[in-house]
Design a binder for these strands. Structure first.
Length: 544
RNA sequence: GAGCCCGUAGCUCAGUAGGUAGAGCAACGCCCUUUUAAGGCGUGGGUCCUGGGUUCGAAUCCCAGCGGGCUCACCA
């Protein structure tokens, strides 16, 4: 820790204060303090009590908390205690706490933890306050707290010193903008997890934990982190998904399983991506993707009610109604969001035939190219569209890949209200079951809220021979340089060979769902300790 | 990975026609027995992110680096 002169000075002064506090008969770092109430309990129980109520039935309390404000007034003073995200004012006067007690009070700093006992009253201005009779010193803040009104605003410091962020940036600080009410966000995140567990537990799913360290990183298309086990001299991957293990469990007869845990993907960081993120995955035997569409809507509604008590949520200044869902096939979504700028929308038939789509994209390319005045947005779209069109024309990518790319380019950003996008190309879905009537398409859906993907689900491919073929197709793509193509997993094929019943499974990004439910604009605001590049150490510090 | 923006006291921020730095809070000392972003008087505190360059002179202009934010690309 590199300290400034200011911080060293404050630290030294406060060490002296601790000595003085000990000289007053207090312990420097006592082991405990018995309270009668939490601050939250006092607020909920006595917030409506009048001054007369409090006077006639005198309520003695012992409470503790961190001092967040001190307003000294000669031989008396007010201070504000904070505990559990709740604040309560205390009033200390010399004639009530005695000479020693008041000496102690004067040695307190903002940030210190104390315990007080006394009785409740209302001040002249009507604020519920503890009239203090004894003060017990509990712990000292050896560093100065951030500015009391604005809190800790520097985004980098908030992430690096989340411990400060958490006690400074609460809804109780008037200057704190609602979107960085940090404590509340993480309380809600915990409620999301609890609600999900409750939902699945009630429906006969069992919660399981599958390996985070895997010899083959499967179940998704992503670059993994690698690690090594010394005793076995074994290279391992941090998992990118639990999927293949969870389906092995369904083979084993655990018909309904879920897991809530971290996935690790060695890819870029953005407002929607952190290298480690939390995923719910669940599998249900004898269900298909239609069943999971219904379940998804029900689950998200349930979680929203548990967390927020309502189905609407404000995200990026848009009111989102989690009670109303739209369902669109991927091809319909492309047709719906096809921009006029590219001419008339393609037809379903054109989107299902490589040759016809190639012609259609070439036409669109020409129409867009010949338009004289392009907006920046159109230029951006065009800039992404052109390579897609060329990939199809030069047969570098299959129809399926092109469809998926077109969908992401044209439709994804529009999916603000809850939308289920179903029927994906087989080429981008190596673990999904084909549609009986359209073998190039699979029974898969993703759902979108706020313009990004929150979940991915499908009827699970359970034919071991077909699965082997799909893995081989993936290996071929890997050969062609796609580092994220799926690896072969022989044991998974073996597991399928013992018989996986018809099963559907789904993964839901917990961080992103929490963003939607709390209005957080960055995934880093819903992860307590998001990954940051460490500050480069100075030579002096490295030598320590 | 690319583009744009930011980095000044512990914190929140001012400070450019380039003249070697300010406020509020916090800290320290004093006054104040119903305040609440309490108030009053006084004091201390800064490698202006780092390293180069231009200049008589750089927080300010230029270059490189470090850290961060946003947008885009990849992905969930």
């Amino acid at each position: 820790m590199s300290e400034s002169e200011f911080e060293r000075k404050v630290f030294t002064e406060r060490k002296k204060k601790i000595e003085q506090i000990v000289a007053l008969g207090q312990r420097a770092y006592p082991n405990s303090f018995a309270t009668t109430h939490t601050l939250a309990a006092i607020r909920s129980r006595y917030d409506n009590a009048t001054a007369e109520d409090l006077e006639t039935a005198r309520t003695s309390v012992a409470v503790s908390g961190r001092l967040m404000a001190i307003r000294q007034q000669g031989k008396a003073g007010f201070a504000q205690l904070q505990q559990g995200g709740v604040k309560l004012q205390i009033y200390v006067r010399k004639d009530a706490v005695g000479d020693q007690g008041f000496e102690l009070y004067k040695l307190l700093d903002i940030g210190d933890h104390i315990g007080v006992s006394g009785y409740l009253f209302r001040t002249r201005t009507g604020e519920l306050t503890v009239h203090v009779e004894t003060i017990t010193f509990l712990s000292k803040a050896m560093l100065a707290l951030p500015e009391k009104y604005h809190g800790l605003a520097d985004v980098e410091l908030r992430y690096r010193q989340r411990y400060v962020d958490l006690f400074m940036n609460t809804a109780l600080n008037e200057g704190t903008p609602a979107e960085i009410n940090v404590r509340d966000v993480f309380v809600k995140r915990a409620k999301v997890l609890a609600a999900m567990r409750h939902y699945f537990d009630q429906r006969g799913y069992i919660e399981v934990e599958t390996p985070m360290m895997q010899p083959v990183a499967g179940g998704a298309a992503a670059k993994p982190f690698t690690t090594h086990h010394n005793a076995l001299d074994l290279d391992l991957f941090l998992r990118i998904a639990p999927e293949l293990y969870l389906k092995r469990l369904v083979v084993g007869g655990l018909d309904r399983v879920y897991e809530i845990n971290r996935n690790f993907r060695n890819e870029g960081i953005s407002t929607q991506h952190n290298p480690e993120f939390t995923m719910l995955e669940f599998y249900q035997a004898y269900a298909n993707y239609h069943d999971l569409m219904d379940l998804t809507e029900e689950l998200i509604k349930f979680v929203a009610m548990e967390v927020n008590g309502k189905l609407t949520t404000n995200f990026n200044d848009v009111e989102i109604d989690l009670g109303k869902w739209e369902r669109l096939s991927m091809r319909d979504a492309i047709i719906k969001w096809w921009p006029d700028y590219f001419g008339a929308s393609p037809t379903m038939e054109e989107l299902s035939d490589e040759q016809k789509l190639a012609t259609r994209l070439a036409d669109a390319h020409e129409i867009a190219r010949s338009q004289p005045n392009k907006s920046q947005e159109q230029l951006n779209t065009f800039g992404i569209f052109v390579p897609i069109e060329m990939d199809l024309r030069d047969r570098r990518k299959s129809l399926g890949h092109i469809i998926a790319e077109l969908f992401e380019l044209l439709a994804e950003e529009h999916l603000i209200q809850p939308t289920i996008i179903y029927d994906f190309p087989l080429a981008v879905s190596p673990l999904s079951k084909q549609k009986p009537d359209e073998p190039d398409w699979v029974e898969r859906f993703e759902f979108y809220i706020g313009g990004f993907e929150l979940g991915n689900a499908f009827s699970e491919l359970n034919d071991p021979e077909e699965q082997r073929k799909r893995f081989e197709m993936q290996l071929a793509e890997r050969e062609r340089g796609d580092e994220e193509a799926h690896q072969m997993d022989e044991d998974y094929v073996r597991a399928l060979s013992y018989g996986l019943p018809p099963t559907a499974g789904e993964g839901i990004g917990i961080d992103r769902l929490t963003m939607v439910l709390t209005g957080a604009k960055s995934i880093r605001d819903v992860i307590l300790f998001p990954l940051l590049r460490p500050h480069k150490k100075t030579e002096a510090e490295s030598a320590e």
